[in-house]
């Protein structure tokens, strides 16, 4: 089976117009699966439930498979209701990003996808969730090809595997909004400052090393995870879907690059320089090789492909 290409949910706070324009382009791209929804902060209200549904209809009409993503950190009762609303619609499959959503979906007998924040570290976890309706799971972003290989060998039949191959890595979630904190504002009066950072806010060490990226209550890597050179390895490991995480610029070109490599129209190497220029703070791939996530390995391409 050919690997499918997915676009993860937009993790940043973009204006409604920016999102609508963005997805018009996505509709015409080579992407197979589109994840939609606000997964980071419930205060980001530019898009209402019906706006997401309209977008979903538009993308479906262009032949895209749409999955609705639920919030990752569910605390307030309003967040619970919102999670429930996404889980209780029957038009689209849901990506559960919290066990609360898994509970609602499995009780309703619906099949679902789990996002990378659902902790699956062993084959027994996969089996349990499959019995509860899991149809596709995302590999934890901190795991690499070695663990994936073992999980794939023991994966229950019929289960699909998805791996993130491009984007700043979601690393942590908090009750605290770090964007508001950086502006000396409390979360309850955040003034929606994060809408000014379409790719998050860089957090550097005092030696000017670009270390992390603040996105409201979420903390990401400053570096962009890039595994375009590992698509062949993923094919051999039986990965079904690879995920690109959207960014404010060049997402279409990134999709194009991955699509070309998956279709074997160009070798991965052809796109390295171009992709490097799209990652404004640099690339990393350490997690995939079992190292610190921020590491950029310098394994020559040929060796990496045969690994």
């Amino acid at each position: 089976m050919a690997i499918k290409l997915s676009l993860g949910p937009v993790l940043y706070y973009w204006s409604k117009q920016k999102l609508l324009d963005f997805y018009q382009y996505i509709a015409k791209s080579d992407i197979d699966i589109v994840y939609l929804g606000e997964v980071v902060c419930s205060k980001r209200l530019e898009m209402k439930f019906n706006d997401w549904m309209e977008l979903a209809h538009m993308l479906t009409s262009h032949g895209k498979e749409v999955v609705l993503s639920t919030m990752t950190l569910i605390e307030a009762s309003s967040e619970r209701s919102r999670m429930r609303r996404f889980c209780e619609q029957d038009e689209y499959c849901v990506e559960a990003n919290d066990f609360g959503a898994i509970e609602i979906l499995s009780q309703r007998g619906k099949s679902y996808v789990t996002g990378s924040s659902i902790n699956i570290y062993n084959e027994r976890s996969l089996k349990i969730l499959q019995k509860q309706g899991l149809k596709r799971w995302n590999l934890s972003v901190e795991l690499g090809k070695e663990q994936l290989g073992i999980l794939q060998n023991n994966r229950p039949d019929g289960l699909e595997t998805e791996v993130m191959v491009w984007g700043r890595i979601p690393l942590a979630y908090s009750a605290r909004c770090f964007t508001a904190r950086s502006h000396n504002l409390p979360k309850d009066n955040c003034q929606f400052k994060c809408i000014d950072d379409p790719d998050g806010l860089l957090m550097k060490t005092r030696e000017n090393q670009e270390f992390l990226c603040i996105n409201g209550i979420q903390t990401q890597s400053a570096l962009t995870n890039n595994l375009i050179e590992q698509l062949d390895v993923m094919q051999n490991l039986g990965v079904d879907v690879v995920r690109i995480s959207p960014q404010s610029q060049h997402t279409l070109q990134i999709i194009e690059a991955f699509s070309q490599v998956l279709a074997k129209k160009q070798p991965a190497q052809f796109f390295i320089a171009q992709l490097t220029s799209y990652a404004t703070t640099g690339l990393c791939d350490g997690y995939w090789y079992g190292q610190a996530g921020m590491t950029k390995t310098t394994i020559p391409l040929k060796q990496a492909e045969s690994a």
């Binding site: 950190l73 009750a175 992390l212 903390t219």
Partner: peptide, 17 residues
């Protein structure tokens, strides 16, 4: 500061979380 069980900052920097 982060939700326990969902913080990978340590493995991002060191490989161990």
């Amino acid at each position: 500061v982060m939700v326990e069980g969902r913080c990978l900052l340590s493995s991002y920097a060191t490989g161990r979380s």
